[in-house]
Nucleic acid binder design. Structure first.
Length: 253
DNA sequence: ATGGCGCATGGAATGCGA
């Protein structure tokens, strides 16, 4: 089973790239973030014509998450239960016997800001929810744009901002892995400076001035069967790319 | 130190992302 995540920064703009990528890579599941469109504008027909079913939770201009799958997703859940939030950042569904969660973690703007406090509160709510979900679903995968670079290997040495690399954010990431979730990417040898996001400005991609902030966390049952994980940089090289590249993992049957 | 780019809304200029 091939699982992937991609922050597309507008599904409307990126739809042709997403369809091409699905046709080339043929993942069983693709989690999307930053749809930036309302549900009534979700391109259902195009996705289904590509051989995928979709469940989604979108809003105008910002946020928005989806799960595309070759099998029909069931038991759809939107948001974090008990955490009131107008921002569409979480959708969960069962595909086969895997519980899949597509999540767009808050950016946080700047350490100490109001948005940073929201980021930490959101992370705490997510963690408490997942602790229960893991009891219900032993095969669980949390995929998405975490907006956290978990350790120093995950940020370019010249990254000067605190946001995405601060201790509270990294502690929150550790709390998630502390639930028994494994960072699929770190189950394998990886090249140095293997990032998933590069700023549009300053020729950041050409200079590889990036961060690894898109992740796939796997429950123990899935991690034991994980055979590969990597970043697919090809879409970042296209005209009008998303600023994020897809991350892909493979799970043996 | 700041802004750089891209996308959104709305129909110019501004907010936001990371």
């Amino acid at each position: 089973m091939k699982l992937a995540t991609w922050n597309v920064n507008s599904l409307k703009v990126r739809l042709p790239q997403v369809l091409d990528w699905l046709a080339t890579v043929r993942p069983d599941v693709l989690c999307l973030q930053e749809l930036k469109l309302e549900d009534r504008n979700f391109p259902i027909a195009e996705i289904e014509a590509a051989g995928y079913r979709a469940v989604f939770s979108g809003q105008k201009a910002y946020n928005g998450v989806a799960i595309l799958a070759r099998e029909t997703p069931t038991d759809i859940s939107i948001g974090i239960p008990g955490f009131a939030d107008e921002q569409r950042r979480v959708i969960a569904a069962t595909v086969g016997n895997v519980r899949v969660i597509s999540a767009y973690f808050p950016n946080g703007q700047a350490v100490g800001s109001e948005k940073f406090a929201y980021k930490l509160a959101w992370l705490e709510a997510l963690t408490h929810w997942l602790e229960e979900e893991l009891l219900r679903y032993p095969s669980l995968a949390l995929l998405g744009d975490y907006n956290i670079a978990p350790d120093e290997r995950d940020a370019h040495p010249d990254w000067k901002e605190e946001i995405h690399v601060s201790q509270p954010e990294r502690d929150a990431f550790r709390a998630l892995t502390g639930l028994g979730l494994s960072d699929a990417f770190r189950l394998f040898e990886q090249p140095e400076k293997n990032f998933s996001w590069w700023d549009y400005r300053m020729m950041a991609f050409r200079r590889n001035f990036g961060l690894r902030i898109d992740h796939i966390l796997l429950s123990a049952e899935l991690a034991a069967r994980c055979t590969a994980c990597g970043v697919d940089k090809a879409p970042r090289k296209l005209e009008r790319p998303s600023d994020h590249a897809p991350v892909v993992t493979e799970i043996a049957d």
